[in-house]
Design a protein around this nucleic acid. Sequence first.
DNA 1: CAGCATCCTCGGCGATACTG
DNA 2: CAGTATCGCCGAGGATGCTG
Lengths: 147, 147
Amino acid sequence: MEIDPQDFAEPLRAGLAALAADMAVHGTRRDDPTREVMAMLGDRWTMLILQVLAIGTWRHAELRRALSRLSSEKAIAQKVLTMKLRALERDGFVTRHVTGDVPPRVSYELTGMGCQLAEEGRRMIDWVNARGATIEEARRTFDRAED
Amino acid sequence: MEIDPQDFAEPLRAGLAALAADMAVHGTRRDDPTREVMAMLGDRWTMLILQVLAIGTWRHAELRRALSRLSSEKAIAQKVLTMKLRALERDGFVTRHVTGDVPPRVSYELTGMGCQLAEEGRRMIDWVNARGATIEEARRTFDRAED
DNA sequence: CAGCATCCTCGGCGATACTG
DNA sequence: CAGTATCGCCGAGGATGCTG
């Protein structure tokens, strides 16, 4: 990570160098945990899944129904729920318990780190919710100005 | 948002009802500010753009170069940068100043709300960075267990 | 009941060329 | 220099059917 002096005017140059240093320049690495986690939280279901899992331990089908209740859109596809849960499990945010073979009986719950992530997510939800009206007003103004 | 009593066992039912209530069930509405903002932060560039804009005021081309420096991947496409900035402007996180017609001279800076968003984003970055090693270790363990 | 395989749709993102 | 228009790729995610 080199900052070429001539490309930027002070004081931006110094700020940029500092940012580069203390962001550890994970920046936009494909497999960077920061980007991966943010991408997960920003996708269609993961944030909601985390909030529901924060309530307790769920079986797959129940969790799926719970999500349907919370969503004003269509239910999550079974495959997708499995996919999202697996991704969360892989990163150590969720544990998966199997208790029964046929029929399978699988349950999911948050790990300690998963609880923390759910809380962080909740912070973001609350922050945006608190500004939701402001944002929607800004959008209306912007859209109107565009004709 | 109705929670059907027979679909869920206590105490999950109660928790779900409570969550439904105080999340205001923006849940997964397509144009819900919460989901839109989270999706923005989770996309490939917006988080990085916010962190760079937190440094100061940038012209388009300089901002673009700054992002290239911070990213280990290819530079952001001009069109994409314009798109991302416009989205941020629309929601009231960024202001756009035009000072000159030909050649155009355009600069961008964060609004007050934009600064707050950048800080919230920074919290998330720091949180994940602090756990990056744990997460990557969890991934290795998981991947190894899968054969 | 949970998961996997398959197929398909759609939107994010990039590359390039062009305007004022 | 900033923005727009056009085109194309690719992967997330949804629908369906099958297995143990």
